[in-house]
Simulated scan of single mutants.
Amino acid sequence: MLGVGHSEALKHWNNNAMVEAGGRRLLIDAGYTIKFALQDLGLGLADVHAVFITHAHADHCFGLERLGYECRFQHGFRPTLYLPPGVYEELWEHTLKGVMGQVGEGPAELDDFFDVVLLEDMSFEFEGIQFQLFQNQHTPQKPSYGLFINNHLMFSGDTRPIPDLVEKFTPEVILHDATLSDWNPVHASVRELRETYPFEVRQRMHLMSYEDNFEQHRLEVESEFAGFVRQGQEFAL
Rank of each mutant, 00 (worst) to 15 (best):
60 H>E: 12
140 P>F: 01
37 A>C: 05
88 Y>T: 02
45 L>V: 15
168 K>P: 10
128 G>C: 07
87 V>R: 04
105 E>F: 00
144 S>A: 13
126 F>E: 08
210 Y>F: 12
176 H>Q: 15
145 Y>M: 02
10 L>G: 11
37 A>S: 13
101 G>K: 10
74 Q>H: 14
63 G>E: 04
106 G>N: 05
227 G>E: 13
113 F>V: 11
95 T>W: 04
224 E>S: 13
80 T>V: 15
119 L>K: 13
190 V>K: 01
230 R>Q: 15
205 M>R: 06
121 D>Q: 11
74 Q>W: 09
13 W>E: 03
120 E>R: 06
183 W>I: 13
55 H>L: 14
211 E>W: 03
89 E>A: 09
234 E>Q: 11
188 A>E: 09
198 P>W: 12
184 N>S: 14
232 G>H: 06
76 G>R: 01
209 S>N: 14
158 D>Q: 02
38 L>H: 08
106 G>R: 08
76 G>M: 08
181 S>Y: 11
129 I>H: 05
63 G>A: 06
67 L>I: 10
47 D>P: 15
102 Q>G: 11
66 R>F: 14
50 A>F: 04
174 I>W: 02
142 K>C: 04
205 M>K: 05
108 A>H: 10
51 V>E: 12
163 P>I: 07
44 G>I: 01
223 S>G: 08
183 W>E: 15
88 Y>F: 09
223 S>V: 05
166 V>R: 10
35 K>W: 01
72 R>I: 10
102 Q>C: 13
54 T>N: 14
155 F>Q: 00
210 Y>V: 01
124 F>W: 09
29 D>H: 01
134 F>M: 07
176 H>T: 04
75 H>C: 06
38 L>S: 06
88 Y>Q: 05
79 P>L: 05
29 D>C: 03
73 F>H: 12
